[in-house]
Amino acid sequence: MEHIRKYNYFEIRKKPKAVEIEPLLAETNEQIINELNSVLAMAFYETNRHVKLEMSNFETLPFSVIEKLIKYAMDLREKNRVLILSKPKPPIRKYIKTFSLEDLVLIL
């Protein structure tokens, strides 16, 4: 059975092997970034599953958000878990490739 939690800006689904995080808006602002931090922390501490973040809504992200996602991916890797970015747009893919982060983040 799938467990769903809804927040103001994100919806979280707990699947058997992963926690899926889906943004409800395609924008970023201070409140959304703060909620993203909380949602990622919840996925890290409350479960032992991989974390899948739906990226198809975002054309690009502020550098500070990308930096937090990379740090988060490193923390997950230490726990033998993976950050999965689902359908990131070309600018985000290019950033990951430019800095050789393909081993750290799985892209679907």
Score class of each variant (00 low, 15 high):
Pro16Ala: 05
Leu101Tyr: 03
His3Ile: 11
Pro16Glu: 15
Thr28Phe: 15
Asn48Gln: 15
Leu25Asp: 10
Lys87Thr: 11
Val39Ile: 02
Glu46Asn: 12
Ser86Glu: 14
Lys79Tyr: 07
Val65Arg: 04
Ile66Asn: 15
Arg81Thr: 05
Met74Thr: 11
Leu108Glu: 10
Asp75Ser: 11
Glu67Met: 04
Glu102Tyr: 04
Leu40Glu: 03
Lys87Met: 07
Lys87Arg: 13
Thr60Ile: 15
Ser38Asn: 03
Glu67Asn: 02
Glu27Asn: 01
Glu59Pro: 03
Val19Tyr: 15
Ala41Pro: 00
Ser100Asn: 10
Thr98His: 07
Lys14Asp: 12
Arg93Leu: 11
Ala73Met: 01
Gln31Phe: 12
Glu22Asn: 11
Tyr9Cys: 07
Glu2Arg: 09
Leu104Ile: 10
Lys97Met: 06
Lys97Trp: 01
Asn29Ile: 10
Arg93Gly: 05
Pro62Cys: 07
Pro91Phe: 03
Ala43Trp: 08
Lys79Arg: 13
Lys14Arg: 11
Arg49Gln: 14
Glu59Asn: 15
Thr47Ala: 13
Ile70Asp: 08
Ile66Gln: 12
Asn8His: 12
Lys79Ser: 13
Thr28Trp: 12
Arg81His: 08
Leu76Ser: 06
Pro16Asn: 09
Glu59Ser: 14
Lys68Met: 03
Ala43Ser: 15
Lys97Ser: 10
Lys6Trp: 00
Thr98Gln: 10
Pro88Gly: 09
Lys17Val: 07
Ile4Thr: 04
Phe44Thr: 06
Asn37Pro: 00
Met55Ser: 05
Leu101Cys: 02
Arg93Phe: 01
Pro23Lys: 01
Ile92Phe: 06
Ser64Pro: 00
Glu78Gln: 07
Leu40Arg: 01
Lys71Phe: 00
Tyr95Arg: 06
Thr28Arg: 12
Asn29His: 08
Lys14Leu: 09
Ala73Trp: 06
Tyr7Gln: 14
Ile107Lys: 03
Glu46Thr: 05
Arg5Ala: 14
Met42Pro: 01
Leu83Gln: 04
Ser38Cys: 05
Val39Leu: 02
Tyr45Gln: 12
Leu40Val: 05
Glu35Tyr: 03
Asn57Val: 10
Met74Trp: 06
Ala26Phe: 12
Pro91Met: 02
Lys97Cys: 00
Lys17Thr: 14
Lys17Arg: 15
Lys79Ile: 04
His50Val: 10
Lys89Thr: 02
Met1Asp: 10
Leu36Cys: 01
Glu67Phe: 04
Met1Gln: 09
Glu2Leu: 12
Glu27Ala: 04
Asn29Gln: 02
Val65Pro: 08
Pro23Cys: 08
Arg49Phe: 15
Glu2Pro: 12
Leu106Ser: 14
Asn37Asp: 07
Pro88Asn: 06
Met42His: 08
Val82Glu: 09
Pro16Cys: 09
Ile70His: 07
Leu76Trp: 01
Arg81Tyr: 06
Ile107Leu: 02
Pro90Arg: 06
Asn48Asp: 14
Pro23Trp: 00
Ala73Phe: 07
Lys94Ala: 04
Asn57Glu: 11
Glu46Met: 08
Phe44Ala: 13
Arg5Asp: 15
Ser100Ala: 04
Ser100Arg: 13
Glu67Asp: 13
